[in-house]
Structures are given as C-alpha cells and as structure tokens.
Simulated scan of single mutants.
Amino acid sequence: MISTLSLTQLHYTQLDATTWCATAQVSETLKVQQEEKIWQTAAFTSHIARYGFTEVNWQYHSATLTLPVRELAHKQRQLQRQGVRLLLKKLLNELNISDSLDESGFPYRLSNNGYYVCFSHTSSANKNNVSERSALTLNETLKSHVAVIVSRHRPVGIDVESHHVKWRVAQRFYSTDELTALESLPISQRDNLAKLLWQIKESFIKIHQYTLAQGLGMDYAALIPDLMCCLEGESTIQVVQCDLPHYRIAILTNQQTVVIF
C-alpha cells in the first residue's frame, strides 16, 4: 500500500509574545498496486490449438482496497497522529526553532527548551463518518483537521471541532447552570455555544490533566455572555478573559478552534 500525506489550509497565529498556534487540514491518499487479471479468449487455427495473438480479448480489473471498520478507524488515528506532528514541525520551522517533541509525559514539551506543546485533531465534517463505514476504495482520501499550540510560558490547551455537540451529550455532562442558560436560547445559538463550551472544557482537560468526566462536568456558565458576544462579532479571532485561573480564551472562528493560553 502506498500513502501520501499532505497539509493544506495552513494558518499560523501568534496569540501573545510567548504563544503560537497553527491549524491545517491533513489528508492521506491510499493506493494499492493494481493487480491486472488478464482473461484470454483463444482462437483455433486448423486442427491445432494455438493462440492467435491478434484475436485475444484483454480485460483489466483494478483492485479495490477494502478495509474493515476497525482498520479504517486505525488508519484515521494514524493520520491524525502523524498530521499533528508534521504541523508542529512546520510551526517550529516558521518560528526558527530547532527542537524535537518529548512525549515521555504530559503535558508534552519540547526536548531542549522545554516549551509546552498541545495537540488537537478531529475528522473532517462529512456524512461518511469512519465509524459508519465498512470499506475504503482505491485512491480514496482520508482527511482530518489538526491543530497545535506552543507556549514558552505555561501549559496551554487547544481544541478543534468540525461537528456540533449533540444536545443529549451536552445534557449528560454539562452543569445545571450551563444547561439552564443554553435552553433559553434559539436552537442554532444553543448548539454553537454548546460546541464552544465543549472545546473550552476539552482544552482545560489537556491543561490540568482532568479525567474526561471531571473536565466536562466543570461549570463555565459564567462565560456564556462573553461567548455570545464572540459569536456575534465579525473578527476572525475573539479573546475572552477567564478568571479560572487567569487564563485567556481565544476563539479562532474560521479554523473552528478554541485555545486556552
């Protein structure tokens, strides 16, 4: 199998003097070498059976790559893992930083200068979700959105999301105050805010190493008024002050990314 990995839609953003992030779409085209099956129809001359080359009918059959759901999901995870690391390399090149990633513990840091690193990835928005499929065809392209943040100052968090959070999922994890505030809004606004809250929670999980249930259960209802203003603003980057614990929240609207720095 042959695969080609590429990054497109690259965006670099400097959030302050010590913090930089990048987002991109990573894609991988899977190919298999074509096995050509040749079927021949022979012609007979006289009473001796022999092939008349000009009378042979050739049929070519291209191989189709078929992967089970589990292997397909594994390929998607591999793509995301490789994609965020390739994006980190490109960001470090932009910053003229020569270093490597230390993955021995959380949060991730650069090996030499100790800068903090955080990753995020999500499957591209489409109806053909990997978990709902059973086969991958020849020359098909897998895609994911990837994001990375580097901070010289302290642990930071980042989360990129292509899809809205299902309301029944929010009802399971969000606090009573968050749900009360969200339920009073029109559905489209509710869904947009529920997604932003999810991204904030995911980002703080990465910063503080909360468990998933603990992090999603944190109450950020006090942020909702400011988040509503962000959704109404026209700027591609919105920054919200956060008193817990003196972090700032950057919303990169066009990149569907939230950063805690």
Rank of each mutant, 00 (worst) to 15 (best):
L5V: 12
L7T: 02
L10V: 14
H11Q: 11
T19P: 01
C21P: 00
E28F: 14
K31G: 07
Q40N: 11
T41G: 08
A43V: 15
A43S: 12
T45V: 13
G52D: 13
T54H: 09
E55H: 15
V56E: 13
P68V: 00
R70Q: 10
E71G: 08
H74P: 14
K75A: 15
Q76E: 07
Q80A: 07
D99A: 01
L101H: 05
G105M: 08
P107A: 02
Y108D: 02
N112T: 12
Y115V: 05
Y115C: 13
V117L: 05
V117D: 04
H121R: 07
S123N: 14
S124D: 15
N129Q: 14
N129I: 13
N139V: 06
E140Q: 07
L142H: 01
L142K: 04
H145A: 13
V148R: 01
R152L: 10
H153A: 15
S162K: 04
H164L: 14
K166R: 08
R168I: 10
Q171T: 05
F173K: 04
S188T: 15
R190C: 05
D191I: 08
L193D: 00
L197G: 04
W198L: 02
Q199T: 03
I205G: 00
L212G: 06
Q214V: 09
G215P: 00
G215M: 04
Y220E: 09
A221R: 04
M228C: 11
M228P: 06
C229H: 13
C230R: 01
E232D: 15
G233M: 11
E234D: 15
T236V: 14
V240G: 00
H246G: 11
Q256N: 09
V259W: 00
I260P: 02
